[in-house]
Structure formats: C-alpha cells, structure tokens
C-alpha cells in the first residue's frame, strides 16, 4: 500500500501530470490496492462535481470600460526625455530654437488629436456599457417631444432630438451621461438591429465637418455644429451611419 506521502501522486495522476512510466506504475498499484483505488474514485467524483458547477466569475462590463479609460490616462502621462545641454553643440541649439516654433503648432495639433481620441475611446466604452448593463435609456420613449423636455433641469443645455422613423431610424430614448469630465446627453436610435448612441454636449470650438473613425470594431462619427459637439457610436456600417449623421445635421 502506498504511503501517505504518495498521495500527491494520486492527484497528479488525476490531473494528467504524471509521466508515462509513473502513471503505469500507479495503475498497477491501483489494481491491487483497494484503499488507494477508492481514494482515486472519490477524488475523481469530487473533481467532476466541482467542474460541473459554474464557478467562474466574469468581469463586469463597467470594469472593462474603467480599465480602458485608465489606459488612456496612462498614455498621456508626459514623458520628456532628459537632455544634457552641455553635450549638445551650440549650432544645433540655434536650429532647434527655430524648429520649436514650427513644431509647437504640430504638437498642439497632435495633443488635441490625442485628446479627441481619448474622448472617442471614452464614448465607445460608454456605448459598450450601455448595451451590456440593460441601461440603454433613462427615459424610454419613441416620442421626441417627451425625450427633449426630460433633459430640462438635468442638463444646462437642450440636446437635439430628431424623428427619423420615416427613414428607418427609430428613436429609443435618452440617457444622461458623464464622460471624461463632460456632462452629456446620449440620444439613442436604432437601425434594424443596430443601436446608435449619439452623444451631445456644448462645444467650445468652432463648427467642423463630420469626421469618421473606427475604434474597437465600432464606427464613430464626430462633428461640431451650432455650438454643440456630437459623437455618434454604432456597429452600423459606415455608409449608413454617415447618411444618418447627414440627416441629423439637416
């Protein structure tokens, strides 16, 4: 009979972690030893019982969004490489000074684009969360005349809500959002199976034409019009999403 120190081998055998030679030796032993054979059977039953139970917890959707958002913030942590001025020749410093003025404008543009990308990522994460958490709308109605007033008192602006059901875009309702430091309205539309979240918030910049991009498999259109910024997120194809945006802008 195998000593109790050999008990580990029984478990390794059950887990297919024993090499061939030892497995065969153990099987020979099990054929002769009732106690060990009973042990193996008992632990096999235990494993089967445990494996049959769904014990795996899945990460909640909002955790995924939070992680994605924080990755963005980590990306924008400034990392300036140290420059030892004494080792840099004077003439390259003069050239560098001239280049600075040129690059400042470029850098500003890149930084702003990165901020835009970061904002877009936040809206996409929000779009995903709204789909998963059964929290698509705070006010559920297809009546635009109900959705708009619902926001009064909750926002200090009045979001645009359109009735495009004639064109095949149904209004599902609205939702209050807080994304990346902005309080925003999310107006929710549907085209066939596809949900479209249109985020809108007051803009500081001038109007700009719709610009389309893709993020994590979703299509995103952003534009500014009449003092408001918009961001439409959906898994709807680009063409129809663009058409939808054109209709909203009319």
């Amino acid at each position: 009979m195998a000593s109790h120190a050999q008990r580990n081998l029984l478990h390794a055998y059950l887990d297919d972690e024993l090499d061939l030679v030892r497995s065969m030796e153990l099987e020979d032993h099990l054929a002769e030893c009732g106690d060990c054979a009973t042990e193996v059977a008992s632990y096999r039953a235990l494993r089967e019982r445990v494996l049959a139970v769904d014990l795996r917890y899945e990460a909640p959707a909002h955790l995924r969004s939070r992680v994605l958002r924080q990755l963005e913030e980590q990306e924008h942590r400034p990392s300036t490489p140290a420059v030892n001025l004494r080792r840099v020749p004077w003439w390259s410093l003069a050239t560098a000074a001239a280049c600075v003025l040129v690059t400042v404008a470029t850098v500003m543009l890149v930084v702003r684009r990165n901020e835009d990308r970061s904002l877009i990522r936040a809206f996409v994460a929000d779009h995903v969360r709204s789909l998963m958490a059964s929290h698509l709308t705070d006010v559920l109605t297809s009546d635009q005349h109900t959705v708009k007033p619902w926001f009064t008192g909750k926002l200090d602006f009045s979001p645009q809500v359109r009735d495009l059901s004639g064109e095949g875009y149904d209004l599902l309702g609205g939702r209050l959002e807080y994304v990346d430091g902005h309080t925003a309205a999310a107006i929710v539309y549907q085209r066939r199976r596809h949900v479209i979240n249109v985020f809108t918030w007051p803009s500081s910049g001038s109007d700009h034409e719709p610009s389309t991009t893709a993020q994590q498999g979703f299509n995103v259109v952003t534009w500014t019009q009449g003092g408001m910024s918009y961001c439409a997120v959906s898994d709807l194809n680009r063409q129809e999403l663009s058409e939808f945006v054109s209709m909203l802008r009319r």
């Binding site: 795996r56 992680v67 690059t103």
Partner: peptide, 30 residues
C-alpha cells in the same frame, strides 16, 4: 525621440496590451 514618435509608440503599446493582456481580464477578476 520626437513627440509624434513617442505618441505613436504609446498607441502601439496600448494596442498590443489590448490584444495580449486584456483578454485575460475575466481570469484576473475571477
């Protein structure tokens, strides 16, 4: 490294992280 190069590197790093590590978020949470 220019500002634009380091920005591109950051974006690449995030993309790689999302492809390789983020899929195991469930295991981590579990």
């Amino acid at each position: 490294m220019t500002q634009m190069e380091s920005t591109a590197n950051s974006r690449e790093k995030i993309a790689r992280f999302e492809a390789l590590v983020l899929p195991h978020l469930d295991s981590a949470y579990n």
